[in-house]
């Protein structure tokens, strides 16, 4: 089996993986990082979104072997070493940007990518950035607001 070396949330892991294994299955099954969710099988829902070298990627569209030598960030890595929440995590709670929470990790990872590229996005830009992430509970309005609030917090820091 191919051997991969991947930086996951700042820590390098080396594993043998099946060539056909999807990155999302590697994260969930092999590494136990179950915060990355699977909501569909056609790369539509975005629940599995992680960041690969900073870019938001649906981890169901990528093989684990393709992540070799890359840096992957998942929802588990958003929390600081001291347990402090990332501004996006805090803003999703403060703005009631989640209900069942299943889409939330993907929403947060997509948003984190957006805010690195565009620190002060307007609503239309946020909505555009989240077109690949489905939420069935919130109606999105509070999610968009959470991203806007988090952006403001991050700009102040």
């Amino acid at each position: 089996m191919p051997r991969v070396s991947i930086n996951i949330n700042g820590r390098t892991v080396e594993r043998e993986v099946e060539a056909r294994q999807l990155l999302v299955d590697f994260l969930r099954s092999d590494l136990g990082l179950t915060g990355t969710h699977v909501g569909c099988d056609t790369s539509q829902c975005g629940a599995c979104t992680v960041r690969v070298d900073g870019v938001a990627v649906k981890s169901c569209t990528m093989l684990a072997v393709q992540a070799d030598g890359r840096a992957i960030a998942t929802i588990e890595g958003m929390t600081g070493p001291d347990g402090s929440l990332h501004p996006l995590q805090q803003a999703f709670m403060d703005c009631h940007g989640l209900q069942c929470g299943y889409c939330t990790p993907g929403m947060i990872m997509s948003s984190a990518c957006l805010l690195e590229e565009e620190p002060a996005p307007d609503d239309a830009t946020i909505e555009q950035a989240l077109q690949g992430n489905l939420c069935r509970c919130t109606g999105y309005v509070n999610i968009v607001e959470a991203v806007r609030v988090a952006a403001a917090t991050m700009r102040e820091r």
Partner: peptide, 16 residues
């Protein structure tokens, strides 16, 4: 699939 079954996406309503 979600390709064929059209679910509302972000921005369908801007403000309530």
């Amino acid at each position: 699939s979600f390709l064929d079954y059209a679910m509302p996406r972000a921005g369908i309503v801007r403000r309530f």
